[in-house]
Each structure stands twice: as C-alpha cells, then as structure tokens.
Nucleic acid binder design. Structure first.
Lengths: 342, 342
DNA sequence: TTGAAAGCGCTAACAT
DNA sequence: ATGTTAGCGCTTTCAA
C-alpha cells in the first residue's frame, strides 16, 4: 500500500495529528517541523487517501461556490447538468456546491454573488464572468485568501486563479472554416459573420479564427460584413435579413454566438436560397432543430456538460493535492451535422 | 447526512454486521431477515458510502480483469490511456486492474486470458473480443458466476453482460455521409468503400450507415466497389491503387477501418487526383498526419480514451450499486478536420 | 506547539 | 444465523 500519515509520523518522530496539521497548512505547527514533514512527504511520495479524508471530515463538508449567468440560458443548462454529474461523483467524498445564478453578465451582480457565497462558508469557487477590472480584482482577492478558483467557460486573462476550464474560441472558428473550405471547394467565399456583440471577445475570436484558417488554406474569401444580433432572435433576424437582401453575393453565413440562432434560422428560411451555406456555434435545442431541418449546415459545439464536470473535478483535485488541478482544461471542439441528431 | 448501515440496523432491530451481509449477498443470512433488510434499505433510500467501503476493504482490493487485442495497435493505446485515467481516480477507492493483451483477435487466446484472469482472483471483467460462439459461452459463464462484465468497443449481441461501452458504427457511417453530402453538393457520389474484412461487423455497419444516410438525403450515388485491405498497409495500398485505376469515376473513398490507413494514404498520393474526396475512421497518429496534409479530408473518431475510462467506471458503479452501471455507454462520434490537429 | 484519541461508514474476522 | 469488534486513513477536539 501507499504511504500513509502513520508512515510519515513514524519516519519523522512526531504524532499523526501533527503530520496532518503540517500538511494541511494549519499554522499551528512550528515552521521547523512543518517544513521537515513536508519535505519528507515529498520524498516518500505521500498522496492523501481520499477515502480516509472524506470519511473523517464529512461533517465539515467542502462547499464549492458557483456563479453562473445561467438564467434563461439553455447553454448553461448543460453546464449545470455537468456540475450535477460531478456532484453525484464527489458528494460522498465530502464535496457539495452552492449555486448562484443571474440573468446576463452584470459584473456588480457577479461580485455580490461571490461575496454571498463566501459569507455562507464556501472555501472554493467556480466563476463564469466577463472580463473586467472589478471581476479581476475580486478574483485576485479570492486567490490571496487562499481560495482556489476555477474560471469557467469565458476566459479572463491576467488574473490569479487555479485554472481555466472552457473552449478555445479561435480554434472553433478555424475548425468551422476548415469545413467550409471543403464544402465550397475552389469557390470564393463571401462571408457574413454574425456575433452577439463586437465587444464579446469569444465571438470575435471565432471570427478571427475563421479568417485566419481560410488564409492559411489560401482559400479566396471576402468578409462582406460582421453584424451584431445582440444574442436576441428578433434583432438577429432583422439584421440578417437586411444584410442578405443588400448583399446577394453572400454565400456563407457564420454565426459565432449561441444566442439568437432562431432568428438567424427564420431569416434563412425567409431567404430561401439553398446555395447559401450556414454554420452555427453551440449545440442548444433550437440550433439542433435547424441542423436537423437543413437550415443550418453544421454546428461547432464545445461540450458544455464536460465543462461543468471538469470545473468541479478541478476543485476536487486541488484539495486532494493532485497536481493537474492547476492545469487548464480546454474542451474539444466538435463539428455536428444532421447525422448526429437522429 | 444520508442513511447508514447503523440506521438500517437500528430500524430493523438487527446488528450492523447482519445488515452489511444482507446487502452484500453473502448467503449466510436467513432469507427472511435478508429480504426484510433489503426492503428497508430500498424504502429509506440507502446508498452505500464509497469512502467507508473503500477504507474498510482496501486490503482486499477489487481486481478488474481486462483483455484487449492491443498489441501493436495505436488505437488501443488510447483505450489503455483511458483505463489508466480511471485507475488513477478509483485506485484509492479500492479498485485495480489486471491487463492481458494479445496481438489480433484470436478467440482461443481471448478465452485463455479470461481464464487466467479469473485464476488470479479477478471478480469483474472488461472484455474486448470478436463475436463468436465460444466467446459468448464464456461471457455467459462469467455472468452465471456473478462476475459483472463490460463488453468494450466491439459489440457482442445476445450475451449476458453488465453493459456495452463503445461506438455506434452505423451512426459513424451516417455522419461521414452527411459530411460528404455537404461537400459534394448536388454531385453524384461514386463510392469506393474500404474495409479490413467483410466479416468485420463494425466496418460493414459503417458502410451500411453511409449508404442509408445518402439514401435518406436523396443524394444520388453508386457504390463502385467495397474492397478488403486486411487492415494492413501494403494490402490496402495495392487494392486501392488497382481499383482507382480501373475506376477513374470514383470521387469518394471511405475507409471504414482504422487499419491500413497509411496504405490508403500512399495510394491516394500516388493517384494525385485532388478532386477525390477521402474519409477515414479512428484518430490514430497516421490518420492525423494524412488529414493534416490534406490527403484525407476528414476523419470520424470515436473517443477511445473515454471508452477505456467508462468501462472501468461501469465496474466501479456496479460495485457501488449505482443503477446506471447496467446502461450501455455509447461514445460520441466526432468529425475531425485539419483544424483539429494544429 | 504537540500528543492522544474519538469517530466517520464499512467489511471481515472472530465469537456466540 | 447473528452479534461484536478491530481497523482502514484521516481530521479534529481535548489535554498537556
């Protein structure tokens, strides 16, 4: 069997309790012994036994605080599903989550939610937020307090964190372009890009990836327009219809957001041109239906369920001193076609 | 907290030991009490605590016997990686695996490996084998002895088992066809199908799926030929070259096996026709390279790593009385293009 | 600052 | 057939 606390205690000549305290950063152990024990644990390759730990400390459950902009968002329903899967797996290992949800991404609300979670005793966090100064400050603060924090789904650069779990937006754009390159073999691509907002980094990265891929493939193309649908169906439908009628040369539509897809679908149906190629992002119910009905040709998805699962797992790994806890988890980007949904 | 053995003991008026025995099917408990306790556990929603169980019975490790046709097979390297991932997760929960490998699929060897695993004390099995009578008999025998057995990767119909973990070959064919339909828009498809052997059910199912999808899409097509490459590079190269030269009208090549792909690549390079569309299966190193270099247009993969992981997890779930242990796990089929590998 | 010991849920060896 | 109990690895309270 592996090295246990008892082994360490015997080897270092102190009691089991002291070893446990030394390894768990309680600063009630003298620096000297603490250092010595940590050293020894390192050498002997001590790995804490999850079962023992779980059993012992199960009255003091390890609460993970989660904040999501998930109200009225089918995409986040899948993320939540993943979180629940993880929970089923880690609950009897002493973990539980406290979830706070908001509609939209307002940063003041996000910070308030984090504070509330801290107030109810969460000692680790999973945060899905927009990139802005207040949030970054808050994240640094959590880090300073020693709370491991996973950034979920939306990357936030330059902040202290345990790790990031989410997609590679630029790669998703590249993959979409690869596919279009195959489907529009040797034909010039006249692209209409649709984003929620030009301020949404992820959406714009998808567009950028799309373009860079076409360039590296030497596929002739022109960006006819990049338009904003505000992630709303009606707005998206209107701007798409307007642009399509003004630019009949458009032969590829790439919607780089999961929001407003129904609107795009409606516009494409109204338009009726079979030769127009359409690519979507994120596998939510409406997108699926559009692919099934050949309105959208394919969709690039990012496995939301896995993201939820992995975020929780990262926290679990952290507390069990598994080193990979500190490594980002980038989900696979998948192409899905009609055949996937039947 | 949840219901514990102690709770059940108190509620039923017997000792905690008796409850444990009743719930673990040791037939040293009278049918009457056993039944009563099981009933009670049901009612009160008792779920065994993994931590407690793991801790208690960790000297008597639960060995999982695994047989794979994995020697000299890069595809199975990924399956093994998944098994090891699972192991890392479940090792301190009292599980370990004993792996037996063979080169190829000979059924006598497979049965011998299973017997050896049983002899060294494995109480559960993960088997990857061909469908034949001897194997099916052996699987039924394991089932009769009460050993849970997961069928991995290659489906075996009509045998007793815990569940199947693997891909849906027919769906993979359909997905491949969906893509080709988009890429050969309104063009007639003249298909060359390449399989390892016409006796390999999975390969033929992929071809069948491919055809059925084209039909449901009303895409005009003709199967020029289905040829066997014996999963070997040289054979594959030869038969493909021969067929291509005899049938210049072929514009789509679908290789429904992960074996012999290099050979296909060589044949396509020799052939040099840029208009010919090629689709592969299974993401192994050579296939990846061919996609990167635009020799193969895309590949349909089946997540081997997840299969390995899930197979072990199913066994774990079974012993922890998680009901989903009995449900098949069908992995997602993914399309991968050049953009995935850069 | 440290040691001693109880107890988490469960299994298995031993006792009855 | 059933009860009793030690002990798995760990955290935490209580003493010293």
């Amino acid at each position: 069997m592996s090295v246990t606390l008892k082994d360490l205690a015997k080897a270092s000549g102190v009691s089991i309790g002291t070893v446990s305290r030394a390894l768990n950063d309680k600063n009630e152990v003298s620096e000297k012994t603490s250092e010595r024990i940590r050293q020894l644990a390192q050498e002997l390759g001590y790995v804490p036994n999850r079962a023992g730990r779980a059993l012992s400390s199960q009255k003091s459950i390890n609460y993970i605080g989660v904040t999501l902009p998930s109200i009225n968002s089918p995409f986040f329903d899948d993320i939540k599903k993943g979180i629940n899967n993880a929970l089923r797996e880690f609950k009897d290992l002493g973990f539980d989550v406290v979830l706070k949800e908001q509609e939209g991404w307002d940063s003041q609300t996000q910070i308030k939610m984090i504070d509330e979670l801290e107030a109810v005793g969460c000692k680790s966090f999973i945060v899905c937020a927009f990139d802005c100064d207040e949030i970054r400050e808050k994240l640094d603060e959590l880090n300073t307090k020693g709370y491991p924090t996973v950034i979920l789904n939306n990357f936030i650069p330059d902040c202290k964190k345990l790790c990031f779990v989410g997609p590679d937006y630029e790669k998703q754009g590249r993959i979409a372009a690869c596919m279009v390159d195959k489907c529009k073999y040797k034909q010039k691509i006249n692209l209409l890009g649709v984003v929620g907002s030009k301020h949404h980094l992820g959406h714009m990265n998808r567009i950028a990836g799309f373009k860079s891929c076409l360039e590296s493939l030497n596929h002739e193309y022109e960006v006819v327009d990049i338009i904003e649908g505000e992630d709303q169906d009606i707005v998206t439908q209107q701007v798409v219809m307007k642009t399509l009628s003004e630019h009949p040369e458009i032969n590829v539509v790439f919607i780089a957001t999961g929001g407003g897809v129904s609107g795009l679908g409606a516009a494409l149906i109204a338009d009726g041109d079979q030769e127009r190629f359409a690519v979507g992002c994120d596998e939510i119910y409406t997108t699926k239906e559009l692919v099934k009905n050949n309105i959208i040709d394919f969709v690039v998805t990012q496995g939301p369920e896995i993201q939820g699962y992995q975020a929780v797992k990262k926290i679990h790994d952290y507390f069990n001193k598994i080193s990979s806890a500190h490594t980002d988890y980038i989900v696979e980007s998948m192409i899905k076609v009609k055949g996937h949904f039947e």
